[in-house]
Design a protein around this nucleic acid. Structure first.
Lengths: 116, 116
DNA sequence: AACTTCTACAACTGAACAGTTGTGGAGTTG
DNA sequence: CAACTCCACAACTGTTCAGTTGTAGAAGTT
């Protein structure tokens, strides 16, 4: 199922925004930590190595993007992954990285040949 | 093939950086325009609706990330997609968007029930 | 060689955002 | 109720980066 071409402006903006949410190391770490199951803010604070306020802010952003969901548990808030397909995304990115690194390797193999 | 858990710090940074490259509307438009085949900077300038210098800068970023490749063609530079899997990525993002929007729709259906 | 076209580099400016500090509000416990 | 814990909101600060302006270099044309 392909996407329309050219992509409508509004869709371009939304796609970019979506990628932007994932473009922050702290948010990646938070999502990674949630792979093991739901966690509270205090627990995530430890996993991500960031301040409580900072973690809370990033979680709000992830929540707004619909990537995590929040559930009140008495005194605390328990966050969990809302969309497991996120990890397929990350794995694909890693796949792209492997290809990229392989290309660089290949270029380094034929040493002495200037690119330009 | 799963990723290690927790993700090593260096990998987290690289993943975030990768997403960051895709978090800009102009760069999305450039990649989208290249779906139809290689284009010159001048052609991309028209497609993306940005200045030549701006396009050139974004292309340099995409090139550095290994997402496009450059070939000199006489006087001009012809850019093309280096990794077709990029579009699978975008489609997955759009899939996530559909799910997200469906959830919001569902929430709006049961109107009057405050979220908190 | 002089001129034009095409692309890339560098410096500047404004906007967006990550992280901190401070604080308020909701829930629990004694 | 009082004290404490947990989480989120708001204002501030520094950094990062998108876009512009200006210019330099490389290739083609006359």
């Amino acid at each position: 199922m392909g996407l329309p071409s050219p992509l409508p402006d509004a869709l371009v903006e939304v796609i970019a925004q979506r990628f932007r949410v994932l473009s922050e190391p702290t948010r990646i770490r938070l999502l990674d930590a949630l792979r093991g199951g739901p966690l509270t803010v205090a627990e995530l604070q430890v996993e991500a190595g960031a301040s409580q306020q900072n973690v809370s802010k990033h979680l709000a952003m992830l929540l707004d993007a619909g990537m995590v969901s929040r559930a009140r548990d008495g005194n605390r808030a328990r966050y969990s992954i809302a969309d497991d397909s996120l990890f397929d995304l990350c794995e694909q990115v890693c796949g792209g990285l492997r290809r990229h690194l392989a290309e660089i390797d290949a270029l380094l193999q034929m040493e002495g040949q200037p690119t330009r």
